[in-house]
Nucleic acid binder design. Structure first.
Lengths: 158, 158
DNA sequence: GTAATCCTTGACGCCGACGTCAAGGAAAGC
DNA sequence: GCTTTCCTTGACGTCGGCGTCAAGGATTAC
């Protein structure tokens, strides 16, 4: 099997497979014409990498699984090193999820506080003798130096 | 206030502040010597950006907050555009957290399955007439072509 | 005065996992 | 034989948010 077929069967691209090879994850035999030659076991390697990538594993983290398979084990996670990666990833996931939930709570708190503040301002505006109700955009336009910035200069690009 | 002082007071670096300016987030007046000149209101802008960055907001997502402050509003989230960003971020966070929890469940399942498989193999090895207990590493070393790859070729680096 | 520190702009580096383009050889269909 | 498709290597581009270095001018401390 050549690189194009392996890529198609694995649902990826030749470029990706060459990249894996460059990282030492997917060594390839060569035919007499210089073309890379793969077999079914290579398909398993690529599939293993794909599954882990979908889990959010970095390429380096897939290495123990790939080497486990290449060593002849039935599954990529038949080796202790792979299990260690699983456990480390679970810890990372727990930490990350915890942080994200903390952030979500804070953002939600900010949103609620800001909405309440706006509601208060709106209520005051309704009251007789309240402040002039200024349009959001109009307010911005009132101060001259706060006009739309036309200077947007991107780095290294003009 | 010059850029170094503002950076220090905001807990960031001059490079970062120049970067914000290049993105149109933090316009700076200039002194007669060409130095950037900032005041307390600029410190508020930078602090607003920092808070949102800590929440995981991208720089572009902080723009409505910064423009809101620059328009003279009391808070960066006093404007509807900022609230919209809050809501969008909450949705993104919910989606992301959900995905991560799904991945965590899958990884945990994989870990448990793999641990169970190893336990079964260990138990079989204990039984009389069971298979030869092969060392994890020894097994890998047995197949010659699966030896440690010494070819690790990094892209564009040798 | 002079050395140390601050400021300026410009430009390249970094990380990760590839995408994309280029120049050229091999293979496959007709 | 000819065209199209596939393969090869090499090298630059992408995205975000800066870090870091370079060359040179301004300010400040002593």
């Amino acid at each position: 099997m050549r690189i194009g077929e392996l890529a198609e069967r694995a649902g990826t691209t030749p470029r990706t497979l060459r990249y894996y090879e460059s990282r030492g994850l997917l060594p390839a035999r060569r035919g007499s014409n210089g073309y890379r030659a793969y077999d079914e076991s290579d398909l398993r390697l690529v599939e293993q990498i794909k599954v882990l990538q979908d889990f959010g594993f970095g390429l380096e983290e897939t290495r123990p699984f790939v080497e486990c398979l290449r060593a002849g084990h039935p599954e990529g996670d038949s080796c202790p090193a792979s299990l260690a990666v699983y456990r480390r990833k679970l810890d990372e996931l727990d930490a990350l999820i915890g942080e994200l939930e903390s952030v979500r709570a804070k953002v939600r708190g900010q949103l609620e506080r800001a909405e309440e503040a706006r509601a208060r301002l709106a209520a005051e505006a309704e009251l007789p003798g309240g402040p002039e109700p200024l349009c959001e955009l109009a307010e911005a336009a009132l101060s001259a130096d706060a006009a739309v910035p036309a200077h947007v200069t991107y780095e290294n690009k003009g």
